[in-house]
Amino acid sequence: MLVRFWGTRGSLPVALTAPSVRQKIVGALAAANGMRFDDADAIDRFVDELGFAAGATYGGATPCVELEVQGPSYIICDMGSGLRSFGLDSIRRNAEGHARAYNFFLSHLHWDHIMGFPFFTPAFDPEAQIRIHSAHPDAEQALRRQQEEISFPVPFDWLRADIAFVTMAEGQPIEVDGLVVEAKAQKHSHVSYGYRFTDRDGCITIYSTDSEHKPSDMEDEAAFIDFFRDADLVVCDTMYSLAESVSMKEDWGHSSNIVAIDLCHEAGAKRLALFHHEPTYEDEDIQRMHEESIRYEQLTRERSPLDVICAYDGLEVRI
C-alpha cells in the first residue's frame, strides 16, 4: 500500500507568503556562506541538512489523502483543496491506462473536507465512475449545496461523470476492490468518521481526522485503541497542543500530538502521521511540533517504538 498526501492542513487552505519564501532563501544562503558545491547532488544534500522547515514547506492544501492499493480504482480520503492536484494527476495516470474509477471516503462534510470537489476535473469526464462513501446520509446534500449558484457557478447536475453515493454504517465493514473498509464515529461537530483500511496483504491504514478525545471521555478510548490496533500507519488529527485542546479550544473537535501518540502506543501501531495542521502555524511551528512529538514518544515508550512522521503535501509513505 502506498499512501500519498495531497492536502494536510486543517480548517482553511494557506499558502507561503513572499516574506516567508524570502526568509527561507536568506536562511539557506546564510547557511551556505563560503561553501562550494561540486554538483546538484551536493546542493541537494545541503538542502536536506537545512531541516525541513528551512528547505521546504509542509504545504497548505486541506485534507485529501490517496491510498494506492492492489485494486484498479483510486481510493481517496476526503475532498479538501488538495483534491484539485490529485484530480489533475489522476488524469495523467488515466492517460497511461489507469481505470477512471474513483472511490471516495469522507470523514465528514465540513467545508475544508469537501471544498476540492467543485475543482475535481474528473467529475466532468463522462467515462469516469465516482463512488462517494460516507457514513453521513446527508453527504449528497452537502456536495450539491456547495455547487448551488450562490456559492459556485457550475451546478452539481452539470457534472458528466457517473456519480453515486454509498452510505456506510459504523461497525459494518464493506469491501471495495479487495480493500476492507470500516467506519468509526468520532467526536466532532455533526460527527466525523474514521476509517480503517485493510488491504489483501493485511496492511492496515487508519484515517482518523477531526476527532476530539476529551478528558471527560477517556473511558471511551478503548474503542479507539481497538480501531487503531496493529495499524501499519495511523493518519491522525494532531492540530493542537494537549493544553490548547483541553482549555480554550475544547469542543472545537480536534486532538493533540500526545494523545495521538498515546493511542498509537496502546494500540501497537507502527507509524503515526501527524495531520490536519493548524492553519496559523508556520513551517517552523509544525517542525517544532514534530520534533516534540518524537521526543514525547521516546519519553513514554514502554513497548515497540512508534515511528512518528509529519505529513506534508506531496509526502508518499509506502507500507
Binding site: 494537549l242 483541553v246 512529538s293 514525547y296 519519553l299
Partner: peptide, 15 residues
C-alpha cells in the same frame, strides 16, 4: 527532568 519535558511538550506548564 522527564516530567518537565512532558509538561513543556504538552504546554501543561502554561495551565
Amino acid at each position: 527532568d522527564v516530567m518537565r519535558e512532558i509538561l513543556a511538550i504538552s504546554r501543561y506548564d502554561k495551565l
